[in-house]
Design a protein around this nucleic acid. Structure first.
Lengths: 165, 165
DNA sequence: TTGGAATGTCAACAAAGCTGACATATTATT
DNA sequence: AATAATATGTCAGCTTTGTTGACATTCCAA
């Protein structure tokens, strides 16, 4: 009764279907951040610290400016986070060799340990979701997410994926 | 050269593939909120207002408590948002008929207009992403997102989807 | 009639974003 | 050599949105 849309692929662009996708993003994002949030809470860090740690781990020796472009925040906001991470010995900042204005960031051993802990927790949930959904669903998931990104961020995202395959 | 993983479905659970999915969620969520954020900015509202408006529109006559369960914030935080929305004439709060402790929330005509404006903007991007990705990808997208949700939120999400198909 | 549930509100605080202004190196350009 | 532009850091102040804790009101239900 009135549920033909569930099996009718021609309806997948209907307002109702799109709206359900919007709600799915909202609810899924909560699950996405939950496990690392729990760990961060015990350390007096927040999501902003997690993001910085993640992308420094991902692109070792990245500069502050590059990180700003990926995170999409102001330098003041990022600086506050980096300052605490450096003070706590999780991140190391080195003056650039060719261009001495730049600071190159990398995780210390301690920072790498926390990164692994956060990453393991977040990946565990993701992997379980992937496993439950299967490879075809995962491919579709990635395709739709890429299509949702701003073009500029999509390029950055793709560059990250290429650098260590 | 070292890109076999791209075509090898048995690799879809590898750390690297899962990590790319994590980054895809991060970047896509920015695109997801961008268009409504732009509109809200001009009105001195934020994402919290959008979320309240969205779910009140979705479940007219919902109670404050029900909304709290969906949004996952404290009543104090929600109350601050609702107060401004009520003061600005976007939301109406009615004492419950059977249980007079409850407040039932609904959008006013003005609130419904803003909801449509926000919703249209957000759906436009989603629909374009859906269209570009195709129905199979969209099905996979939804499957993976559902698998990522906390079970309790997944139930709430599914109930929302069923109520007006 | 009393306990607990649903709601509202006050105060205080924190995380994490923002703008604007300014300082300091360093590099690039003219 | 002088000047402009870049990369970074920092200070101050503001906003949004979350948090706790305390307390009052209303009212359902045992």
């Amino acid at each position: 009764m009135g549920e033909a849309h569930l099996d009718d692929p021609s309806q997948y662009l209907s307002d109702e279907q799109v709206r359900q996708g919007i709600e799915a993003m909202f609810f899924a994002y909560r699950g996405f951040t939950r496990d690392p949030d729990r760990i961060l809470e015990t350390l007096a860090y927040g999501r902003a610290h997690h993001r910085a740690i993640h992308f420094i781990a991902r692109s070792p020796s990245t500069t502050v400016n590059n990180l700003l472009g990926i995170l999409g925040v102001t330098k003041q906001s990022l600086n506050r986070v980096l300052r605490t991470l450096i003070a706590d010995g999780l991140v190391e900042s080195r003056v650039g060799e060719s261009d001495k204005r730049e600071r190159h960031l990398r995780l210390t051993e301690k920072g790498a340990r926390l990164e692994r802990q956060l990453s393991d927790a977040q990946r565990a949930r993701m992997r379980e979701a992937y496993r439950a959904a299967g490879p075809d669903a995962v491919a579709g998931f990635r395709t739709v997410l890429e299509a949702m990104m701003e073009p500029e961020l999509r390029r950055k995202y793709q560059r990250l994926g290429e650098q260590d395959p």
